[in-house]
Structures are given as C-alpha cells and as structure tokens.
Design a protein around this nucleic acid. Structure first.
Lengths: 107, 107
DNA sequence: GAAATCGTCAACCGATTGGTTGAATGACGC
DNA sequence: GCGTCATTCAACCAATCGGTTGACGATTTC
C-alpha cells in the first residue's frame, strides 16, 4: 500500500511532471494545452496527469469535451511540512525559488 | 539525464528511505544499525542507502570496517525551496510536523 | 592465521515506469 | 448524422525498482 506522501514525492521525482506543475501555477489548463510544449505523445502526458491526480497534486474536471487541470496545493503542503522537519529551514527565500525555477525551465 | 532534484524527490518517494532519514535525524548510524529495525535484508538496505547517497540526502564515510551514514540537509533544502514556490506556505508548524512524523512511524 | 563481522557485488525475480502506437469513446459544429 | 476535436484505453516495449540469495573483499578479534 502506498501512502499519499509516497505518491506525492514519487510524482515530484519526474521533471516532466514538475514542469507541468509550474505551468499550472499560472492558470488552469486543458490536457491538450498542457501537452503542447512537450515533445511527447498526448497519451504520455495523459498518464503523467493521472499520476499527478492520484498523488493529489492536481485535480481534473471535465467540462464538455475538455478536461481542465488545476493545481491542488494541499498535497504539496503535506510534503513540505514533512520536509521542513529536517534542518529547520529558514523561511522561504523567493529569490532562491526563482533561481531554481529558472534552472528547471531552462532544461 | 537525471538532475539532483529528480533524484532527491524520487528517493523521498519510498517510505523505507524516509524512515531511514528520520532515524538519521537522531544521530549518525552504521549501515548494520540502520538495517536492524527493518524486516528486509542488509543488501536491500544497502541499496536504499546508495540511492539516498546519490540523491545527496545522506553521505557515507567508511572508518575501519564500519560505514557511517550521516544526514545531509542540503539536498532536502533544495527540494524544500522548490516546493515552497507553490502556494506560499505558511511558516513551519512544528506541531504539524510531529503529527506527520508520528503517523509515518506508526505505519 | 583462523574465525567472525561489516558491507557490497552479481545474478536473478516480478512489478512498475515512461514511453510508443492505434483504436475507441464522447462531445461539438455544421 | 458526419466529420472533427479532446481524451483515454489497450497492448506493447525496454528500462528501472525493490526485493531476494549467495559469494566475495575488507577489517577486526582472538
């Protein structure tokens, strides 16, 4: 049996999925639009979205024939709480975050 | 190619490895002592420790015939910084952390 | 030096992962 | 109703994962 924390961290372990999450930070997106920038089949992206959904990191709602993907920060918050017990990390440094984000997106 | 962030999150996706990290919060430990509470072979634990090492989450130093494992919070800090960009999480709540830790350890 | 201890290596196993392709389902637009 | 668009399903593939067992190389102890 996998706990939600297992699924959350495992889901974050793939760069494609992390990039999807950063895209969803901007706004909710349809599956086809999520897939557009990737050099990979729509079916592959659909699988990634299923994994993110099972991990609780996003939710998907079907309206008409398009399925909208929405970031769900709760699972991330759980994981973040778990992590912060190690080492009493200083409060969020937004500059650090933007550096990491930039490095991620440039890959 | 896998980035360190990939390796870090993937490493955290396994409950055995997260438990090992919580054990190492207390103190540095020898491989055999890390393995003792688990119902699994020493070789399996050795593999988990290799994964944690490659992810940068721990370091291993051999002194004599004993190999000591030490928590390395830097990789966790990187991952934490990445995560905290999502949702501007409130400052660490230690009570939350202890609840999660208790739930984890009771599995 | 022989025996025990610490840890890894190598080979194997079944299950899962991350991807592909092609067919199938469902909803729209005309 | 027919074609098209949005998405998933099903089958397949190679690679990786998480575990096992048994042999092995160091190191310590007697």
């Amino acid at each position: 049996m996998s706990t939600r924390l297992d699924l959350t961290f495992a889901a974050l372990g793939d760069p494609t999925r992390r990039t999807i999450l950063t895209m969803l930070l901007e706004d909710d997106m349809a599956v086809t639009d999520v897939a557009e920038p990737f050099e990979m089949s729509l079916a592959a992206i659909s699988k990634h979205l299923t994994i993110l959904t099972r991990a609780g990191l996003i939710s998907q709602e079907k309206r008409g024939r398009v399925k909208w993907c929405k970031l769900e920060p709760d699972a991330l918050r759980e994981a973040s709480v778990w992590m912060q017990g190690f080492g009493q990390f200083e409060p969020v440094n937004l500059d650090d975050f933007e550096r990491f984000l930039a490095r991620e997106l440039s890959d």
